[in-house]
């Protein structure tokens, strides 16, 4: 099955091709994770093509947040493999993981800005801690990045003095300031009103194009998020149920996905214990 074709997995991850593709920034193979009796990821297999925005959607408990935590290396899987920028990360030690972490930036659901620092210091933080740039070079890069996310001149403010949308922009600036190859976004529009949601989606699209990024986004904002996505992966019961371009997934004749889109998730889905 070609990468541009839809993967209608039907719960069998092995149906998806195993061969690694040169065009993929991230490749996930048969990923499994269990918490107690709950099998949250049950053999997820998924490719994230370089230079595209792939959005992971699915009902609560489908495992999308847990999957993202594996991709940003905050969790280790029970089994399966993850290849990020041609490095297999699941067996790496602390030093190896840190080297891979240099390649991506993460926008957390709540922004995760440091309360005690100004926006300038928040954005400058990864550069101060992890590079040998001079103060002047750091200041220039921070101003440039703040300008790119529409926060020019706001560096002196503290997170508590900013609206939710502005905090998301600042957090995005911090994720981008080291010019990563990959950007991971966890529910970037949570808690925002519809107009701010649209603005953040537009910003993500523009940023991805300007910085030529591979973006992995987890979102519940369906179907609005499809407007900024190149590809969609639909997780269901811990597996990749659908995977393809937005047009392919939207055109798929799949009852589970249609029920999800219509907001008619089954009782079983709603009762799934773990958030995801």
């Amino acid at each position: 099955m070609s990468q541009t074709e839809i993967n209608h997995n039907g719960g069998d991850a092995k149906n998806i091709r195993n061969a690694a593709s040169a065009g993929n920034a991230i490749e996930v193979r048969d990923l499994r994770k269990r918490f107690g009796r709950q099998q949250v990821l049950d053999g997820v297999t998924l490719d994230f093509p370089a230079g595209q925005i792939t959005t992971i959607v699915g009902p609560s408990g489908s495992g999308k947040t847990v999957l993202l935590k594996h991709l940003n290396l905050l969790m280790r899987p029970d089994s399966g493999t993850i290849v990020i920028d041609n490095v297999e990360v699941t067996k790496l030690g602390a030093t190896g993981l840190d080297a891979v972490r240099e390649k991506f930036g993460v926008l957390f659901q709540a922004g995760a800005l440091f309360d005690s620092m100004s926006i300038f210091d928040n954005v400058a933080f990864p550069l101060v801690e992890k590079t040998r740039l001079t103060r002047a070079e750091i200041a220039e890069r921070v101003h440039e990045t703040l300008k790119a996310v529409g926060l020019e001149g706001m560096g002196a403010k503290f997170p508590s003095e900013m609206s939710g949308g502005m905090q998301k922009r600042a957090a995005l600036a911090r994720a981008l300031v080291r010019r990563p190859k990959i950007l991971m976004l966890d529910e970037p529009t949570t808690g925002l009103d519809p107009s701010r949601t649209g603005a953040i989606h537009e910003l993500i699209r523009r940023t991805q194009e300007n910085f030529k990024l591979t973006a992995v986004m987890v979102s519940h904002d369906v179907p609005a998020v499809f407007q900024v996505s190149d590809r969609v992966a639909f997780l269901h019961n811990g597996r990749t149920h659908l995977n393809g371009t937005v047009a392919q997934v939207m055109a798929a004749d799949d009852e589970v996905f249609k029920r999800f889109l219509a907001g008619k998730a089954s009782g079983e889905e709603n009762e799934t214990a773990l958030a995801g």
């Binding site: 290396l73 993981l97 840190d98 080297a99 972490r101 240099e102 991506f104 993460v106 995760a112 933080f125």
Partner: peptide, 17 residues
Amino acid sequence: GAMQSTEQIDALTVMAI
């Protein structure tokens, strides 16, 4: 505790700190 609940500690980890 507040840093943990608002993912600031996770943010440090993903920044390789």
